[in-house]
Nucleic acid binder design. Structure first.
Lengths: 113, 113
DNA sequence: TATTTGCGCAACCAAATAATTGCATATATA
DNA sequence: TATATATGCAATTATTTGGTTGCGCAAATA
């Protein structure tokens, strides 16, 4: 198994994103989490495992219950990857348009489709 | 095909993230993009298609070449999802710890594993 | 102690994904 | 016009994924 288990792959699934949102408010057990979804306990448990593997959640055992909590630090990794792009969507006059204009100028008079 | 094609799923793949980084600097053709990777042109082309499907990139045809450019606005969607979590990783005294402490207090004297 | 509950683990299955190969089409170029 | 180039599209395949079912174990409860 290669099992590329990184943060980006983990948050690709909508159920897992919902789980993260859910436990951001408070730590919950697998059963408590599963109650919030239509999926089975085992299905949710697998999602939690994936989140745990890439350290998006941590766990704390109390008796026979396991409370899963969000690890916000790991969430930050996604934000860090996005940061360089941020100025692009903030700046309406970004340079991407200019690059394309230049390319079109080079083609000037050749084809106009 | 169900084909859940959203931004989160699109950026889950490391090659696609690399493509986004690449074209953030300047618009490029599929061949120019493929040159930067070990993957075949078709493989890259498929990744570009996926990025285009969820509007992370837009295209502009010039002659027989197609220039793909980043659509930063769509990137922002990921950032928007992350925003609510931001204060959690910025605040070292976040309330998640408190929630867990409360749960442990309820269990006080019962089990201590 | 006997039973119920909470949970993880392993096997299995259908669907989705990533990549390859081959082909078609439109635009350049000789 | 004939050929080369840039690209998309379709079919195929191996791998990954998300989910189910069944089991076992430890902790709580009757």
């Amino acid at each position: 198994m290669k099992t590329r288990r990184d943060v980006f792959q983990a948050i690709a699934d909508p159920t897992r994103r919902a789980i993260l949102t859910l436990i951001a408010l408070q730590s919950l057990t697998p059963n408590a989490i599963a109650d919030q979804f239509d999926s089975s306990r085992q299905a949710i448990s697998k999602h939690i495992q994936i989140l745990a593997e890439c350290q998006l959640v941590s766990q704390q055992t109390i008796g026979r219950e396991i409370y899963y909590q969000l690890n916000p630090t790991k969430m930050k990794e996604v934000s860090d990857w996005l940061a360089p792009f941020q100025k692009l969507w903030e700046d309406r006059y970004n340079r991407l348009d200019n690059v394309l204009s230049n390319l079109k100028n080079k083609e000037n008079g050749k084809s106009e489709n």
